[in-house]
Design a protein around this nucleic acid. Sequence first.
DNA 1: GGCAACTACCTAGAGGGACTAGGAAACGCG
DNA 2: CGCGTTTCCTAGTCCCTCTAGGTAGTTGCC
Lengths: 188, 188
Amino acid sequence: MARKGLTAERVTRAAADLADEVGFENITLTALARGFGVKDASLYSHVRNLQELRVGVALLAAAELADRIGAAVAGRAGRDALTAFARAYRDFALEHPGRYAATQARIDPALLACSDGHRRNVDYTYAMLRAYGLEEPDLTDAGRLLRSTFHGFAVLEANGGFGHVRPPGESFERAVRALHAALERWPD
Amino acid sequence: MARKGLTAERVTRAAADLADEVGFENITLTALARGFGVKDASLYSHVRNLQELRVGVALLAAAELADRIGAAVAGRAGRDALTAFARAYRDFALEHPGRYAATQARIDPALLACSDGHRRNVDYTYAMLRAYGLEEPDLTDAGRLLRSTFHGFAVLEANGGFGHVRPPGESFERAVRALHAALERWPD
DNA sequence: GGCAACTACCTAGAGGGACTAGGAAACGCG
DNA sequence: CGCGTTTCCTAGTCCCTCTAGGTAGTTGCC
């Protein structure tokens, strides 16, 4: 009955890794327990239930994504910032599909408000858009357009939704160019 | 032991309705069987397994979406067609969240090639884009941009990803305007 | 150092969903 | 009518979530 030194954080991090392997929807407390050489019931000392584990992964993933985006946009503005933001976003989704899916999981709004990662992601977006000279409500509209396009692209690419003819990366760069042009001419 | 007159089609249609209620990921053969007043094992006479049921729902939903889009864009071109397409797309996603999620489910490419609904959805998009004077590879890039934005918006809105301040519908109309402008000036 | 409190792990078991094997009753067609 | 097929059944396996209650390590406190 040797102790394995598990903590809520280690479990959550392992869950994030597992999510990247098998998909965020398919993480399982049993599989996680197997990975630690422990019975599944034991994990309930560290995590209340599967739902809470998912929330933990979502917060972790959002923070990691925010780190990447923050590093990418640091010291840039306008087109440079937009391109760096977009690439960081897409790269994260490609490298960490499970974590990325977690960032988009439906979460209790009260909890979401406390999530540093989610808040920072929004902040970076708004900061970038303000540099284009936008103000409310254009800020909101443009922000939603960016999020929709980036997220939609990430989902479709991850799901193999694009035929294999043309490299998705080139389509993505084009999309970012088009968005840049749209932001410069906003509101048309 | 009265027969209930079940068929693969009735089961699939019920699964689509259930998906709209509880989410595409959460449909269950057991719940479906309960709805028909039948044991879960009985459904295996009509559907090979859960995976195949999901595929069936996906094909059904894609056909329904294609019908709506086809009706919307009939006789229109340019901005009119784009707006009608976008509204039909978003409305479908809002009215039938489960069916909409099904249209985006990862499916065996071989099967997907046989899906009339999926093919028509692609065809409508390409027809619309050709009216903007685009040719390959711009056609592919622009098509991916549209799909990404529409899909991303639908997912975020369905997940409650937009705060409640500004009505999503207005942001959506703006996004469509921006996309129209981008298509007219393509490639920038 | 020794004892109590706490915590990390355990076993046992309920409950539910996917799925299979094999059986019986309804149906459809000659 | 009777024969084969289809539809539904019971029974049971396996896997996952989650709870209750027990035991063994660890920590803190005198």
